[in-house]
Design a protein around this nucleic acid. Structure first.
Lengths: 251, 251
DNA sequence: AATCAGGATTCCACAGAGTGGATATTACGA
DNA sequence: TCGTAATATCCACTCTGTGGAATCCTGATT
């Protein structure tokens, strides 16, 4: 595995590596596989896992394979809430100024995961539950994030994920996506025009300097989220992602 | 802090205790507070936290206080998915047989947290996003879980949480709740009759032997989720919680 | 039913990692 | 600017975490 941090508690680094490996493996992995992937002896892996299982952060399945444990659920949820909480005032500000739902999402493997949201006061509004994951190529936040990456990385990701169509408007070819990303970079923001959900338009921008690629979006029905909405939304979005960058930056 | 497990890696146990303390403290806590709560010397806490921060599982805010870090979000989400995945076939089976949304929720502190769901195929359906937390006294899964606890524990929890009314039907006195829990125990399942959401009825049952108190529910609009629905739902629910108990049991 | 192979689990001697008291540094409020 | 409290770092030392060896367990094969 990758080297430990220059300082810190070695077994702590190891145990989180194990958790990430179990997560990557889809929660159905053997001790031996983990030992191989982690490049550590079996007794070491066993002892760390036994500790995790005893504490509830990993579980051993009936077939002796390992999965992540239930106690991580709450930690993740609270971490999510804390991360979102840091950005929440800014998302709410965005909603107050624009009237449409604001989302914060981060790159998670080859997808985006929604980590915070401030819903629009309108009865008809976008609602994407926190924790939900979506494809990159067919969401505003996803395309904003992809636009930050070089074309080779984009190709790699798309090679892995494919380009499932969420709607008839979804981009479904790599060339079309790369063109769209070029336009996104030129504009400074991404547009999802009914690609994820029919009748819904979304404008998204990445958070500069975020520890993981992160984007903020505003979205709503096309009747409201039109060209004139974009004209006033883009400057506000730009301002707000800067604020979020400041607030969530490492100390 | 509580004693370490009889075996396992001590600093791993310590680091997770710290994460839980940060979570409990709402992600705005100082090094000194953590040292006091954990009953460990400052340099020890500092070194463990530094490791967590370096790895991304904790973050130090601008005011030098600590919060949980972004990398826990994904672990929690994956753990949630893995836990829910273990139960998902059973929840889907429940929906196929009954036609209404099925939820799996666990006790998390003094609330329930929804960890898995299979939505009803009906256009009008209950949808409670995974990760959402709700009060115990006004939800079916919450009351099913409370019914597993003795009255003294129930009094303690309610003393801490209060009994906010979600609807005009929500139970709002301890005596009424204890009566309801007695009836729940006698019946073997909990009923939420418009207590969490107007016009929605819910039947819930706990999963026997779950590592943390866990309940499964089916819910939908009262027009469909009526007495005759209950007659056929209860035996199916009982069967399914047994299956979930089997599938998710520790090895 | 017995045997075997491979994987999991436990043992234990030992090296060095993690510990915590002492000290240095930093940040904040008066 | 200064004092104080909290944070961060240092470092000698103890005991924890390590990993090779041994043992145990499980599933497949005969």
């Amino acid at each position: 595995m990758s080297d430990s941090p220059p300082e810190g508690v070695k077994s702590v680094a190891r145990v989180f590596d194990l958790l990430e490996l179990i997560a990557d493996a889809g929660g159905d992995v053997t001790l031996s596989e983990l030992s191989t992937m982690a490049d550590l002896p079996l007794p070491t892996i066993h002892r760390l896992l036994r500790t995790l299982v005893a504490l509830g952060y990993a579980r051993q399945l009936a077939n002796r394979r390992y999965a992540l444990g239930p106690r991580l659920v709450r930690l993740g949820e609270v971490a999510n809430r804390q991360f979102g909480q840091l950005a929440k005032p800014q998302l709410k500000d965005l909603v107050e100024r624009l009237g449409e739902t604001a989302n914060l999402a981060t790159l998670d493997g080859d997808q985006v995961i929604y980590v915070s949201q401030a819903p629009s006061p309108h009865a008809m509004r976008m609602f994407t539950e926190v924790g939900r994951r979506s494809h990159l190529h067919s969401t505003g936040v996803g395309k904003a994030i992809l636009a930050q990456l070089d074309d080779a990385t984009v190709r790699d990701i798309i090679a892995r994920t494919g380009m499932p169509k969420s709607t008839e408007h979804s981009i479904d070819s790599l060339d079309a996506l790369l063109d769209d990303l070029r336009e996104t970079r030129a504009r400074g923001y991404a547009i999802d025009d009914g690609e994820q959900e029919i009748g819904v338009r979304c404008y998204a921008m990445t958070v500069p300097g975020a520890p993981v690629p992160t984007a903020v979006s505003v979205s709503g029905p096309v009747a409201r989220v039109d060209e004139s909405f974009a004209d006033r939304a883009i400057p506000v979005l730009r301002e707000v992602v800067q604020e979020i960058a400041t607030v969530t930056a490492a100390a």
